[in-house]
Write a protein that binds this DNA or RNA. Structure first.
Length: 152
DNA sequence: GCCAACGTTGGC
DNA sequence: GCCAACGTTGGC
C-alpha cells in the first residue's frame, strides 16, 4: 500500500468532475514526464491512496481523496495526432506513455498549498520542495496520516 | 504575464 | 557524453 499526490488542472479534470464520472473513476491521461510515468508503471497498485491536487488555478492545493483503480496501461492520447498529448515518436507496439484509472473517494476542504507549507510534519513532502514540478509524487505513510487528520 | 526551476533535444 | 538552447510547469 502506497500513497501518492496527483496534480490535475481543475479546468481539465477537477475532483467534482471525477466524482461525477461513471464509477467516480477517470483515466489519468496526459502524463508526459518519465519520472511521473515510472511512478504509475512501477509503483502504483490498485487501492493505493491518492491526494487529488488542483494545480494551475487560483487556489492550488489538495481538493479531494481518491484511490488508484487500475494498474498502468497505455495512454491512447499519445497515438492521436489531434490530441494535445500526441507523441509522434511513440509506437503502438511500444507505447511510451501509460496511465492508471483513479477513483475519487470524496471531496475535501481545499487544503491550500500555502497552508500545506505551514505544517511542520509535511515539510518533507516532495510537492513542497523548491522547484518541484512533478505531476505525480510519492507521499509517505506519515504524511498521509497527518493529512487524513487535517482533512476529516 | 513573469520567471525560476527543471526536463529534453540535438549538435559536436 | 557534454552542454547550450529551448520548452514546460506552475506558483505568484
Amino acid at each position: 500500500m502506497a500513497y501518492w499526490l496527483m496534480k490535475s488542472e481543475p479546468d481539465e479534470v477537477s475532483i467534482d468532475d471525477a466524482l461525477a464520472a461513471p464509477k467516480q473513476t477517470v483515466p489519468w491521461f496526459g502524463v508526459r514526464n518519465y519520472q511521473a510515468r515510472n511512478f504509475m508503471r512501477d509503483g502504483m497498485q490498485v487501492g493505493d491512496g491518492v491526494l487529488f491536487y488542483h494545480s494551475s488555478c487560483p487556489e492550488p492545493g489538495i481538493a479531494g481523496l481518491a484511490e488508484v483503480a487500475s494498474t498502468a496501461y497505455p495512454d491512447d492520447t499519445q497515438f492521436d495526432p489531434a490530441s494535445h498529448y500526441y507523441d509522434a515518436k511513440s509506437k503502438r507496439e511500444e507505447p511510451r506513455w501509460v496511465m492508471v484509472d483513479v477513483k475519487a473517494v470524496r471531496k475535501t476542504r481545499l487544503l491550500s498549498l500555502a497552508e500545506l507549507r505551514t505544517i511542520p510534519e509535511l515539510e518533507d513532502m516532495v510537492v513542497l520542495q523548491k522547484g518541484s514540478r512533478l505531476s505525480i509524487t510519492p507521499v509517505t505513510a506519515g504524511q498521509w496520516k497527518t493529512l487524513q487528520k487535517l482533512l476529516k
